[in-house]
Amino acid sequence: MDSLLSVRNLVTRYETDSATVEAVNDISFDVLPGETLGLVGETGAGKTTTALSILQLLPERTGVIKSGAICYKGEDLLSKSKEEMRLIRGACISMIFQDPMTALNPVLTIGEQIRESLEIHNYDGLSREQLDERVDELLEMVGIRTSRKYDYPHQFSGGMKQRVVIAISLACNPELIIADEPTTALDVTIQAQVLAMMMDLKNRLKTSMIMITHDLGIVAQTCDKVAIMYAGEIVESGTVRDIYLGEKHHPYTVGLFGSIPDLEKETRRLSPIEGIMPDPRNLPTGCKFHPRCAHCTARCEREAPPVYREGSHEIRCHLFAAEDANGN
């Protein structure tokens, strides 16, 4: 099957007078039609920057896509004009933002905000009534009473607002939705509700999705494939099965899983990954994870690790690369 979205060797930087932030460093991944890709990592790993790069919504003066290719249905998005890109946003690829509290305009009714997407991409020349009907339909889809379309965002709870945001993202039946931590700002109970609804809609509408999250639980529930990001790189990727049940893992992935409490084992303390994410203005040489890695060797400090492949499972680590070399 051809990829719906294919990102190749993407490099994104934030450049200011005082510093250059190396936010995304040479990442590649594919999203197939109907598939959900989980983009996992700590805060500052470059997940959101990746999403904004795809939609070309990076801050105008500072955010620059240095190199790489982003292909949507075989067409390179980076070579498109501003106007062509605008027509893709919302209609083909839409985005759900992290914080529903701030993602909606406080001075417009939610009906107006949902309608807006429809009006921008109204290529079928729908009448006012038909647009209104579609707004009602979308509200019903996300479980909000249609009479509430005249209400303003401040009259809704966080979970309800996120439903509105989801309705906006679904408005034009996009083929790809990028969900940037869609449940992080919500209560746990509401999280489960919203997530279940999103998955249900996604399956019904056969939309592809990039699910950006730092929650491995959400990934297990919702994703087909996973890419684990660290300091702007994908350090490990594969199917959910590879990541959760595979034998070999990048030390960072091991650390991530280690920091989740286990229901069956009795532990007094969680085991976090020691140290902090490196400063993206001044990344370490060699493997970006080496200062925090328990298995660090002299080679890790010098050379960037090659990719170790095992079927769909890819790991960027010297540990396995060495093994691979010996095995061959």
């Binding site: 605008r86 919302g90 933002f97 305009n105 997407s117 921008i120 906006i168």
Partner: peptide, 14 residues
């Protein structure tokens, strides 16, 4: 710089 401006842009608004 607010998020809802980003939302508006992500809808493809001019």
């Amino acid at each position: 710089r607010q998020d809802y401006i980003k939302t508006a842009r992500s809808k493809g608004q001019i």
